[in-house]
Design a protein around this nucleic acid. Structure first.
Lengths: 354, 354
DNA sequence: CTGAAAGCGCTTACAG
DNA sequence: CTGAAAGCGCTTACAG
């Protein structure tokens, strides 16, 4: 593991600088950290030596001495999924701004890989970890992997029973709003597409779906929840099942945008016009949602900003904050585009007003 | 920068283990690295102590001592772009398999940010760097930022004049093949859409475009190269210009798939049927290409595998290989889907054969 | 304002 | 087969 570090010749260190500047290495260390204790001329001499010898600070050595670390583990469940890409970009950017540097691990939804990666991060002495857990991660095995003392924030997928703070959207009220919108458009047979009950996020979204139905006096029927993989292919599959169902819905909320895009495509292929004959609403507002055909109505939870918030939350934990106080669930807002058909309903109304 | 490391209580170290097992810390170190020198019972005792005290190896301390590093910098120009996401996933996966651990930096096409990040990576003592350079990176400033002794592989975008090995696709022959396909379909007025001459990749692809035209005895006309941002919006803009041009092409190759998807959408919106009235070919074969409406014909260079290769190349450099021998440019293959219209031409032929 | 000394958690010859 | 010692590149009290 690992190779030679900085070329063949020994790297220049703090003592080389000390010798060149004619001071002790303590003094060099002081100027390195910008201490006001050192005299201007001395500082000058040291800085020149640094420049001349092309010295580069060895942060790992410093970290060993101070028992600190500027590394943070960024554990992502599926980086190829544009939703998580956006999350990762948000975390990464914030981490740099906060003075940390992210070690990336893409677990690819594999809990064993996640376990290995977590161990590796510990060995590398990360200051903390922000993680979107792989599907199937449970509080118990996580507790075995990571000591209580390791700052950890869980993002986007809640782990039930874990003391780690959760930072992510409020899936339940988000989904409730999506369904309320569909109800407002006049739909009464509304399905839920994609994901399955082993996923906390799916359960939360289904709860919101049920909340909205019940608030409107509509029955909740399990037969209208069409489970599938949370993928494009899953969307195709789920919508196909929905169309074949005797309860044949006229509108669907989807577990996420990818499912919605799969559903949209399957619908289009069989000649049902999305946004006209059938309403589809997604969740997440990934960048492609806007460019879908037709553009997708979906829930935006500001994924990137949520990533930044997760990073800030971790910083808090590292600084000693109480994990119990660090959870944050953010609001999502409905982004109305064409797949729900709202633009068609509104037009006549507006025209009538004119 | 950085926070406390492993909780409040001192972490257990090799000397704690030594004491608990009744041996010296040298011996503990030996069993840690699986040395055959140590007697089975001793090893046993040590391993039990490790288990019992929940010891975790401090790799940074080891690295300091051995002047090695298991960190590698993974510098990505635009992680939100699905093409680079796929590259990053390929690099990340290979790096873990090779025993390294990736530090992620998303430069977001900003050369100044890239400069800061490169400096930071040096301070953190990475063993090497694999980088898809931000637009506008030049060999000269790169040389100022990184010493010759730092193992570096440049991927996906060649930096002219840099001694660092390049690992990526052969853009010129790839694009030539794409255009040959269009010519084979009977087109004679073929445009090139997107990117601009400041990008090495664009210049290479335009060269291939010209090669194909000239090989077929068709004239190369600069007026058929429509420059734009390499984005979806750029694709809209470029195709709009193409349609307005007096040379009005009947087919286009695009700088990349995102441009092609923008072009496709703009075309569709104004009623020209892509794959029927007009042929579009992309480049990169990002995952969305398959799901475009219509599915995109494009060049596949196996981006993920290319990322793995870049990681392997870096490992070679770290191991002391000659940079001049590590460059690799891979083949790309044409993936025919619907946007080029080939399916329409072939159908009658096949039917005639039956 | 500056220097000498100890120590962070490891590894690596070198003795025995 | 195992232990004592030195050292990787820093930081941090402590003297002066």
């Amino acid at each position: 593991m690992g190779g030679p570090r900085r070329g063949a010749s020994r790297a220049t260190t703090i003592v080389d600088i000390a010798r060149a500047a004619g001071v002790s290495k303590s003094t060099v260390s002081l100027v390195l950290k910008g201490s006001p204790l050192v005299k201007a001329e001395t500082r000058e001499a040291v800085e020149q030596a640094i420049e001349r010898l092309g010295y580069v600070y060895n942060r790992s050595a410093a970290n060993l001495r101070t028992a600190r670390s500027s590394f943070v583990g960024m554990v992502i469940s599926d980086l190829m999924n544009p939703f998580f890409t956006e999350l990762a970009v948000g975390i990464e950017d914030a981490l740099y701004n906060l003075g940390f540097i992210p070690i990336l691990a893409n677990t690819n939804e594999d809990v064993e890989r996640q376990a290995r990666v977590l161990q590796s991060l510990r060995e590398h002495g990360v200051a903390g970890i922000v993680m979107s857990p792989a599907r199937g991660t449970d509080a118990w095995s996580l507790a075995e992997l990571l000591p209580r003392s390791m700052p950890l924030v869980v993002t986007m997928r809640r782990i039930e029973g874990s003391p780690a703070p959760y930072i992510g959207p409020d899936n339940r009220v988000g989904c409730r709003r999506a369904v309320e919108h569909l109800i407002g458009l006049g739909h009464t047979a509304i399905g839920f597409l994609g994901g399955d009950g082993t996923m906390t996020t799916q359960r939360e979204r289904v709860s919101g779906y049920r909340d909205a139905l019940q608030a409107a006096g509509l029955p909740f029927d399990e037969a209208l929840v069409f489970e599938s993989m949370p993928t494009r292919a899953g969307g195709v599959e789920a919508v196909t099942a929905a169309l074949a169902s005797p309860l044949r819905p006229t509108a669907v909320v989807c577990y996420n945008d990818i499912v919605a895009m799969g559903a949209t495509r399957a619908l289009t292929v069989r000649g049902v016009r999305v946004g006209v004959d059938f309403a589809v609403v997604g969740f997440d507002d990934i960048v492609e949602a806007e460019n879908n055909a037709p553009p997708l109505t979906t829930m935006n939870a500001d994924t990137r900003q949520m990533g930044a918030r997760a990073a800030q939350g971790l910083l808090g934990l590292i600084g000693g904050a109480d994990p119990a106080a660090m959870s944050f669930t953010g609001d999502s807002r409905l982004v109305v585009r064409e797949s729900c058909g709202a633009h068609l309903r509104q037009k006549p109304i507006r025209e009538a007003v004119r």
